[in-house]
Amino acid sequence: MSAENAALNAPSKGISPKQLFIGPWTIAVFTWRESIRKKTMVGFLILSLLVIFGATVMTSMMQQDTVGSAAAAGPLETQTKLIKDICVSAISIFGALITIFISASVVPSEIENKVIYTVLSKPVRRLQYLIGKFVGVQLTVLLNLVLMGGLFFIALWAREGMPPTLLLWAMLLMFFEFLILSAFTFAISCTSSSSVLPTIAGLFIYITGNLTEYLKDVSVRAEHGTSMEQLVGQLAQILYNILPNLQNFSLKNDIVQGMVNDPPPFEIIPNLIVYSLIFSAIGFCLSYVIFLRKEL
């Protein structure tokens, strides 16, 4: 009798501990393979790679053309700053767009095409399914960051003549920033059977999460205003308190202003990582609560 027949006839209702992890991992790998083929994601990735490529390689070529008229091209240092600014912004924005898009669509798209029925009717718990999907999203986000960051890393190294180690730290923090963004977008996507609403919500989280300092400013200034202004101020205060501060995760200024191999601000990195893990855990738990009794 083969092993699977033995498993079928086994009276036990449990499942081996190994299977507890294999199920989610199988789903994660499948999700990853499917996600990296999504046209929207590939489109964003190609766009960002083009921006990085254009900003670094093209400007180097332009420099060679304009040798002798340095004034026209601007001082080399200013130009490097501009390139770093453009590329880090591109990675951050396109990375966020990809994160939002994938996080918002992995579950709703499976509901739409009914693949989810075939998966959840197998010995796969809803929690295992969610873990698999979520990990699959993170694998996709990671791959994108590696590709975009990798290209810029090489280009910057070639240009500056030294390994831009600070960029690696920036990418690490960006990953943890996207983890928060992903967890909440994912949770919202579990309420829906279409990815439109969760995508909009994800964009909202990303934009306001990057503007929390501004929200604080609004609430402080509104304290002595009219009642209408106070209401807006209170709303801003509430948003400030519940929204994660994503701006903290950005090392863009350090990269643009400093040397590419400066040490990162080591003292805040562990805090940021813990902060990210806590927020993403909350987001993921939220998705589980929503999904556990969801009618499919």
Binding site: F30, E34, S121
Partner: peptide, 27 residues
């Protein structure tokens, strides 16, 4: 279970999709 009108991920080969489902059963 065969759901009504389900779609199967079309970037995979016939046998690959079965491998995926088999793995979900712990095979």
């Amino acid at each position: 279970y065969l759901p009504e009108g389900a779609y199967y991920p079309d970037f995979l080969r016939g046998e690959e999709i079965l491998k995926y489902y088999g793995q979900l059963y712990g095979l």
